[in-house]
Computed example of a mutant assay.
Amino acid sequence: MSTPSEPDLSAIVGERRRLINLAYRLLGSLAEAEDAVQETYTRWYAMSRQQQEAIASPGAWLTTVAGRVCLDVLGSARARRERYVGTWIPEPLPDRAEWISGRVGDGRAEPGDPADRITLDESVNMAFLVVLEAMTPAERVAFVLHDVFRYPFAEIADIVGRTPAACRQLASSGRRRIRAARIPTAPAAGQAGLVRHFKEAWESRNIEALVGLLDPDATMTADGGGLVGTVLRPVEGGKSIAQYLIHIADKAPGLELLEHTVNGRPGLVARRAGVPVTVAAFDITDGRIVRIWAVRNPEKLRAWIEDGQIAVRDGGPVGGPCRGTP
């Protein structure tokens, strides 16, 4: 027989998925998002039962607290990322179908708690998240809460500590940044073939094919966090990127390169001895690759690992480069 507290507890716990989705978009890091949500629940359970019952909308309370926690994290994160070795890139996420209890499984495991999954849509593609990183903390919170999660400015004002009119201006500024960045909106399905051709050209050391797939002004950025070797500055120009990739491929024979969905878009995963060591996301415009983000920092790849393995799809793995990859 249910006790009176059970429905309330279920409703509170049921907010977790929405809070994780919000926190990931605000912070660009799954680990930090999980910590922020944990802190939010810690504050809820630290209250007395009378204090909890006095809250008219627990969901709204949790959102407000999570937003404030993320705002504080963003403030401190800006200072930490200034000391970061190389370029900081948001943490890449696997496809929702591959998400097993916070990790990529082998397709045989039962799905994990749906509350732990990130909903993949255009607001988590890598190009979008990278633009969010350029926003001020308040601007990012106001924009994400209003334009992505459709919260009214009156509620956002309570989180950010500014007037609704000021929050409207913050969101408008964030919107201009997004428009200026020309975030791609083409269907992801049409990009899978181009990523596959890129993989094949890289594996076959075909520099002419790589140059043809890359925009002349393309940029490749890598994130090793100082924990693994990688190029510290962006590689600019399609020809330079192709030459760099061929150089890396020659130094890393016999390794696997797999096609996977990365933040809702076609991407690639390189692995050594079954362990993912690089996850690459792509920005594709007008049939050419204009940006490559290669995440090598092992602390950002935990969502891709399950007992040292990664899910294999589309006929299995194909040999390719890994060590020393960007």
Rank of each mutant, 00 (worst) to 15 (best):
P4R: 07
S5W: 12
A11Q: 14
I12C: 10
E15P: 08
R18N: 14
R18S: 14
N21A: 10
Y24K: 11
L26T: 12
G28K: 06
S29F: 04
L30F: 00
A31M: 10
A31D: 15
E34Y: 01
D35T: 13
A36W: 04
V37Q: 05
E39R: 10
W44T: 03
Y45F: 15
A46I: 04
E53T: 05
I55W: 04
I55V: 15
P58Y: 00
W61A: 05
T64F: 00
V69Q: 08
C70E: 09
G75D: 14
A77H: 12
A77C: 08
A79W: 10
R80P: 07
R83G: 07
R83S: 14
Y84D: 05
Y84I: 05
V85H: 08
W88C: 01
I89R: 01
E91G: 04
E91K: 02
P92L: 09
P92C: 11
R96M: 07
R96L: 07
E98P: 06
I100Q: 03
R103K: 14
R108V: 12
P111T: 04
G112N: 03
A115L: 04
R117Q: 10
L120A: 06
E122M: 10
N125M: 01
L129E: 00
L129Y: 00
V130L: 05
V130E: 02
V131C: 03
E133I: 02
M135N: 06
T136P: 03
A138K: 15
V144H: 02
R150Q: 10
P152S: 05
A154W: 07
I156H: 10
D158Q: 14
R162Y: 13
T163N: 09
A165W: 09
R168N: 04
A171Y: 07
G174R: 04
R175H: 13
R176D: 14
R176H: 06
R177K: 06
I178A: 12
I178D: 12
I178C: 12
R179N: 08
A180E: 15
R182V: 08
I183K: 05
T185M: 11
A186N: 11
P187L: 12
Q191D: 10
A192T: 15
R196V: 15
R196L: 14
E200D: 15
E200W: 07
E203R: 15
N206H: 13
L210I: 13
V211P: 09
D217G: 11
D217S: 13
M220R: 04
D223H: 06
D223F: 06
L227N: 09
R233Y: 03
P234K: 08
E236D: 00
I241Y: 00
Q243Y: 06
L245R: 00
I246D: 06
H247L: 06
A252Y: 00
A252V: 02
P253Q: 13
L258T: 05
H260Q: 14
N263E: 00
A270I: 04
A270W: 02
A273F: 13
V275F: 13
V277D: 01
A280D: 05
F282R: 01
D283L: 09
R288F: 09
R288Y: 08
A294C: 14
V295F: 01
R296N: 15
R296E: 11
K300C: 02
R302V: 02
E306N: 05
Q309T: 02
V312Q: 14
P317F: 05
P317I: 01
G319P: 05
G320C: 04
G320K: 03
G324M: 01
